[in-house]
């Protein structure tokens, strides 16, 4: 039973670590399926986390914090769109600029506001998203295996965790079952087809980056007001890039991307627990290898050694009418 408990705990931690990845990976997917590279996930997530923590601290409301995060990231999305869609600027450069800008700005404003070295003050209970006990969780807690799985693993997370996991089928539905999704995917593959069908390419791309901003805002708020209790400078620590990797790994599709996020989240959760553990036959596992595994796997995938990740065809190309 000890082993079982350990696995449940590990999976429980995986749910928590993969949540921001899932939201950000979906965010990246919305933008990139419409043809705009979104390298700015990292910076947007950071900006969202900071706004959420600040507003939640001042208003004592995690919901207002969430709203602020989403507004911030959607604003940053518009900036990204302004550079990449309106001015046809380089999407990679724009993304990097936003990342660097937000890394500096959040720390700078944080120090100016709170003078705590870039941290925001710890949030009260009420200013954070709290775990939710799902109905019946306590009652079945003692049922072996299934009961404890339900009460320990499924139940007891904050609402944003559930939002993230529900966002996956929702995104799938939007992308594959609605008019908006059809046009969005078409714009990423062949904007000319969309233009000749009488739909605005620029409009569609702006909408897609706004969707992207919306989702990544939630992931930012999750970091500082749900998983953590304050903003720390550079608290995303590469999560935006991992999410990007997961999105590529999931071949720009919602469910595969989610599984990649869970895998990467699991590696993250396992890494901290594997510190100093000696596995029989292998010896001590270098934690760093586990941490680097998401990136290594993504490179191997991109190299085409395990299946081919085919990016949307017009990804990275501003739309210019042919002459």
């Amino acid at each position: 039973m000890d082993n079982f408990q350990m696995i449940v705990l590990l999976l429980d931690a995986t749910m928590r670590t993969s949540t921001p990845l899932i939201l950000a990976a979906l965010a990246g997917m919305f933008s990139e399926r419409a043809g705009t590279i979104n390298l700015a996930l990292e910076g947007m997530m950071l900006g969202g986390a900071f706004s959420a923590a600040c507003v939640a601290y001042y208003t004592n409301s995690h919901w207002l914090g969430l709203g602020a995060a989403v507004l911030t990231t959607m604003g940053l999305s518009l900036l990204h769109g302004f550079a990449c869609i309106t001015h046809k600027g380089n999407q990679v450069v724009s993304g990097m600029a936003i990342n660097i800008l937000m890394s500096g700005l959040t720390a700078l404003v944080g120090i100016a506001l709170f003078a705590q070295g870039g941290k925001t003050p710890a949030l009260d209970h009420s200013a954070r998203f709290q775990p939710i006990t799902l109905p019946g969780a306590d009652a079945v807690a003692n049922v072996p295996i299934l009961g404890s799985l339900y009460s320990e693993l499924i139940s007891g997370h904050n609402i944003l965790v559930y939002v993230a996991f529900l966002a996956v089928p929702a995104s799938w539905w939007v992308l594959y079952r609605t008019r908006f999704g059809l046009r969005l995917r078409a714009v990423g593959e062949n904007p000319g087809a969309v233009d000749t069908a009488g739909i605005s390419v620029v409009g569609m791309r702006y909408k897609s980056v706004l969707c992207s901003g919306f989702l990544v805002g939630i992931s930012g708020a999750y970091l500082s007001t749900a998983q953590g209790a304050s903003f720390l400078s550079d608290m995303t620590a590469g999560k935006g890039y991992i999410a990007l990797a997961a999105m590529v790994f999931g071949k720009w599709r919602p469910f595969p991307a989610m599984f990649a996020c869970i895998l990467f989240g699991f590696l993250d959760a396992a890494a901290t627990r594997l510190q100093g553990v000696i596995l029989p036959g292998i010896g001590e596992v270098p934690v760093q290898l586990v941490q680097a595994l998401p990136y290594i796997l993504t490179v191997i995938l991109l190299a085409g050694f395990i299946g081919r990740a085919v990016a949307p065809k017009s990804l990275g190309r501003p739309y210019v009418k042919e002459r």
């Binding site: 079952r177 609605t178 008019r179 908006f180 999704g181 059809l182 046009r183 078409a186 087809a193 969309v194 069908a197 009488g198 739909i199």
Partner: peptide
Amino acid sequence: ENVILGVEGGAVL
């Protein structure tokens, strides 16, 4: 999907 692009006939496909 190609044929209906732009004339989908409703928000839900």
